[in-house]
Design a protein around this nucleic acid. Structure first.
Lengths: 336, 336
DNA sequence: GGCTGCTATGTTATCGATACCATGCGCGAC
DNA sequence: GTCGCGCATGGTATCGATAACATAGCAGCC
């Protein structure tokens, strides 16, 4: 089928010979063009074009100890939650000539750990993690590897290195108080216990209802708790229990949307009989009917800022603020 | 802040010294353990553990000319369309110890080209692309690079190398005929013109309505045409034009969902006055009210099979079928 | 005028792992 | 008993780019 005439790969020295210069000059044209005279630069450029030369970055990385790769681990790519953050990272990195090496952990610390190990061998120049809970093994490896590390999507006092996010606790408390301000008196919470950030939101909710002197009703959602169907399930259970909640704060908009649809199926007026609030301000929150009251998260900005911090550190700049709080915003729509 | 005591990195020879063997033996323990005696293997293992050794894969890649990286380019990660395909690839690759290098092209051929160029320098062992339309420059580079290439999500007679997908044309025609079979007589189509696969679906639609002796009504959706809001916009325009369509086939489920919600806002009964069909069978199609009639795509299987083909080729196996048609399936729900 | 300093380019050694070939040893076959 | 074969392991060269150092040429300055 394929003819096995192995064309020899084109190396830097082939380009150099054709352009009548040395290999190091080709290297400079590609990575620091300012240091080369314009005519030389042009000659090298045209040799590169003519030969279709593609530099072997494995060799460059080996010698220079810089890969121009930043690795990132997010919990999932399955739905849109972290998509904006990934885009923010990718955009910022691409602008500076970095590439993004990406893995999804499926919310599983063991997979996160395995991904970190696998990544480190690729000599990334920096690493971006989601959340602030990481295994001791991960912390130890990252400390030993001495690379810029940014944790994201949460806040905490003692990051591994740098941290960009917002307070899930405060956000959970804020939307709970907002619901109370709107007159709801029996506010429930629904979310998974398997995700640290959802647990933080729950803690904020819990402390807020207590401070308000209201009862707390918590519904645990199975597994990752990211599917629309899970939200429908919560409504079924709430109504079956007959707890009499008049509002539910869901740990994310998918759950909230599923709940909304289930209420419609059952003829439960929203927000008349039951108010619904979500978290994340995904597109579906804007476009559902009624629109979902929710908490807007600066997902894109988190990604951009995280990548920016890594690159600033790599550029040798001292990063003044190691902890960046990008905040959140309550978005009121018709569902609550 | 950080103490600049540069701990020397741990190299393979450090592990070797500690285990009382040579570097090459360590290499073998890590990549071909069967070739090493059990006690030696155990000694090396414990030295690796004790030192926290992480192999420098840049060096390994340079010498061995194998990176154990497969690169993939998908149009977008912003919504769930390609998420299952990416997961399928990642799962299959991880099982064999490969890593996935991922980029999103934003449906822009120029970005796809730039990503291909950027990837090739990393010496990927294989490449997975979305769609069958690629610039001449991309084709030329890939031919020169002589690596396994899989195109996905479409069918065609002359792939660059291998191809895994389904016929967007047939799928568009099939759902159109299905709508006709359900009694709809003025079936419209709405989708972007900027995506080759949506255009194929439209072509299938167009030929099907013509064969049925029905009028064709096509509504072009701006830009990528992936947002829920775009679907609502289509309804606004269709009703304003007063074309009298009794069913609309949307190029994807997000558009269809947006249309569904807009109909509810306007009090247009679905499917009573207007039937709606989507494409993709995303979660929202199952969970909307009414459920969306749509076309189910084997997204996960496409990813798995594409990665599998690459790895089989790398393992030296002759790939018998270079074109794999995974088909599609019409899913009837209440919206049409 | 000679010295300093800057720009443009070249020479050499090296990054760390692995392919290739070599070697030593034990064991079975004739 | 000797030969040969296979298994386990090691020595050395090498992958291709770039850091570090070297050098040549030229301008400007006291």
């Amino acid at each position: 089928m394929s003819d096995d005439v192995e064309k020899p790969r084109i190396r830097m020295r082939d380009v150099a010979r054709r352009a009548g210069v040395s290999a190091i000059t080709v290297s400079r044209v590609l990575s620091a063009p300012d240091k080369v005279a314009p005519e030389t630069r042009a000659a090298v450029w045209s040799a590169v074009e003519a030969l279709g030369y593609v530099p072997n970055l494995a060799a460059g990385t080996l010698k220079s100890q810089r890969s121009r790769i930043v690795a990132a681990i997010v919990p999932t790519l399955r739905n849109a939650i972290f998509a904006e953050t990934v885009e923010g990272m990718a955009d910022a990195l691409r602008a500076e000539g970095y590439q993004l090496l990406l893995a999804a952990s499926g919310y599983d610390p063991a997979i996160e750990e395995a991904s970190v190990m696998a990544f480190l061998g690729r000599q990334p120049d920096g690493l971006i993690l989601t959340g602030i809970e990481h295994s001791d093994a991960v912390r130890a490896r990252l400390a030993a590897a001495r690379l810029p590390v940014v944790e994201t999507w949460d806040l905490g006092a003692s990051p591994i290195d740098m941290l960009v996010g917002f307070s899930n606790y405060d956000a959970g408390a804020a939307i709970t108080r907002d619901l109370a301000r709107s007159g709801y008196r029996r506010i429930a919470f629904a979310g998974t216990e398997r995700e640290a950030r959802a647990v933080q939101r729950r803690a904020g909710y819990r402390d807020a209802v207590r401070a308000l002197g209201m009862p707390a009703t918590e519904v645990a959602v199975a597994a990752a708790g990211l599917s629309i169907a899970d939200g429908a399930d919560v409504i079924a259970r709430l109504l079956a229990e007959g707890g009499g909640a008049d509002a539910v704060f869901f740990a994310n908009d998918y759950l909230a949307f599923g709940a909304l649809v289930e209420c419609q199926r059952r003829g439960v007026p929203v927000p008349g009989q039951l108010a619904i609030a979500g978290f994340g301000d995904f597109e579906i929150a804007r476009e559902s009917l009624p629109g979902l009251t929710t908490v807007r998260i600066p997902g894109y900005a988190i990604g951009r800022e995280a990548a920016g911090l890594v690159m600033r550190r790599l550029a040798g700049a001292a990063v003044d603020r190691r902890i960046v709080d990008l905040g959140f915003e309550i978005v009121r729509r018709a569902s609550a």
